[in-house]
C-alpha cells in the first residue's frame, strides 16, 4: 500500500473471530495532508468489518473535527488498506482458536 502519511494499526490482538475490531489511526507525516489535523494524537475506534466501510469512519472523523474535509479520501484509503490486510490475513489464517 502506498504511504499516505497516515498510519492505521490494530489496537488489539486480532483472533479472527469478532466482526468488530479496535483500530488506531494517527498522522505520521502531516505534510501529506491537505488540511491541518486538529491534533497529533492517536485516534482509537472500533470498526465493524462486516457492516461498515472505511469511508463511513473517515466521514465521521471529519464530522468530529479531527481532519479537514479535503483529507477524506486519504483517511479513507489509509483505513481501507489496513482493513484489506486484516481481511487478507483472516482469509489465510482463519480463526486461530477453533
Amino acid at each position: 500500500a502506498e504511504d499516505t502519511g497516515v498510519r492505521v494499526e490494530l489496537a488489539e490482538e486480532d483472533h479472527g473471530r469478532k466482526s468488530s475490531i479496535a483500530l488506531r489511526l494517527w498522522v505520521e507525516d502531516p505534510k501529506k495532508l491537505k488540511g491541518k489535523p486538529k491534533d497529533n494524537g492517536a485516534i482509537e475506534f472500533t470498526f465493524d468489518l462486516e457492516k461498515e466501510t472505511p469511508d463511513d469512519v473517515a466521514q465521521e472523523m471529519i464530522d468530529s473535527g479531527f481532519f479537514h474535509e479535503s483529507d477524506l479520501k486519504i483517511i479513507a484509503k489509509s483505513i481501507r488498506d489496513r482493513v484489506a490486510l486484516i481481511q487478507w490475513r483472516r482469509d489465510r489464517i482463519g480463526p486461530r482458536i477453533q
Binding site: R7, W26, E28, D29, P30, D39, N40, G41, A42, I43, E44, F45, T46, D56, V57, E60, M61, D63, S64, G65, F66
Partner: peptide, 27 residues
Amino acid sequence: SSFTQVVHSAGRRFIVSPVPESRLKEQ
C-alpha cells in the same frame, strides 16, 4: 489523564491519546 473521548452523532466513540514519540516520523 491525557486521553480524550469524542462521540460522533452516529454513536461511534473516538478515543484520542498521545502517539508514542517513537512512532512519529521525524518532522
